[in-house]
């Protein structure tokens, strides 16, 4: 009887998770395998047969990869600056970099519309200094979506990297310097390799996040730059094609899980490679 106690205690939470997470996800998966003509993979075949869907799938990948790359670079610079700042400045910079996370995704994506729009900050500035004589079409491009997503997710990258960079022992830098490594050499031979675990964690967060967001591609990409998530929305809410929507959801889930596993394996291989050499 005593052994049952702990199980009873976790029961409510387990039930909640089961009802609200496991059941719906299982339902989605089941529906995606329920083809119209009874075939298990009918829905998937239908999805991949449509060229438009393939374009959207590849575009989603491209956008997620590019925004991950941009926020990796920007996030590394930011985290490096924060990790090397004086304690007081560090606090301020950290708060500033996390601050965007406190506002809604919608607001942040709208702010990018204000920046990139026909009468936005960028166009106004370029027109004024005579760089262009006609407003550029910046909105509803792939670049706009990538920029918006990178802006959205860079704080996550910074947070993943600051801890890793701060944990590098200052004596390692001192040792590398005393052994003759220039500051640039120290960066590439010590800082960067030791930051790899943080870079992987941050990349997983940004990549999966970029792949799943809905608001940013809708607002900054519009109809022209449809991604998997916006396509899913259209199938479900506009054309009421639930089978297709379920299939897209299942595909997105599969991509996310594959990415997490692949990046985790990459991290392990780097660690193992270090041990083997």
């Amino acid at each position: 009887m005593a052994a049952l106690g702990p199980w009873l205690l976790v029961l409510p939470a387990t039930m909640l998770l089961f009802l609200l997470l496991v059941l719906p996800v299982a339902g989605t998966l089941k529906e995606s395998f329920d083809g119209a003509s009874g075939g298990l993979l009918d829905n998937y075949q239908a999805f991949f047969a449509d060229e438009f869907n393939r374009v959207v799938l590849i575009r989603s990948f491209k956008i997620a990869f590019m925004s991950t790359f941009v926020s990796l670079v920007a996030g590394f610079l930011g985290a490096y600056m924060i990790a090397n700042a004086s304690p007081n400045l560090k606090r301020v910079l950290l708060i500033l970099s996390v601050f965007p996370l406190l506002t809604s995704v919608v607001v942040r994506s709208f702010s990018f519309m204000a920046i990139l729009g026909r009468n936005g900050v960028v166009n106004t500035l370029f027109l004024k200094i005579g760089l262009i004589d006609q407003p550029l079409e910046l909105l509803f491009t792939q670049g706009a979506v990538v920029a918006g997503l990178a802006y959205l997710f860079t704080p996550l990258m910074i947070l993943s990297l600051v801890g890793v960079l701060e944990n590098i022992d200052d004596d390692l830098y001192a040792a590398a310097g005393s052994l003759g490594a220039s500051p640039v050499g120290v960066f590439f031979q010590v800082t960067l390799p030791l930051a790899v675990p943080g870079m992987i964690v941050g990349s997983i967060l940004v990549f999966t996040g970029s792949l799943a967001t809905f608001v940013t591609p809708v607002l900054l990409g519009g109809e022209q730059q449809m991604t998997l998530s916006t396509l899913l929305y259209r199938k479900a809410m506009i054309s009421f094609d639930w089978a297709a929507a379920n299939t897209i959801a299942a595909i997105m889930m599969a991509i996310t899980i594959t990415c997490v596993i692949a990046m985790g394996a990459l991290a392990n291989r780097i660690a193992a490679g270090r041990k083997m050499r």
Binding site: D171, A174, S178, L179, G180, V190
Partner: peptide, 22 residues
């Protein structure tokens, strides 16, 4: 002179070995 131009061989208290290198 900056440290990397001084040719100093330093042994640190916590060893300061590069953990990612053999």
């Amino acid at each position: 002179l900056p440290p990397h131009k001084r040719d100093a061989g330093i042994v640190f208290q916590n060893y300061a070995l590069f953990p990612h290198l053999t």
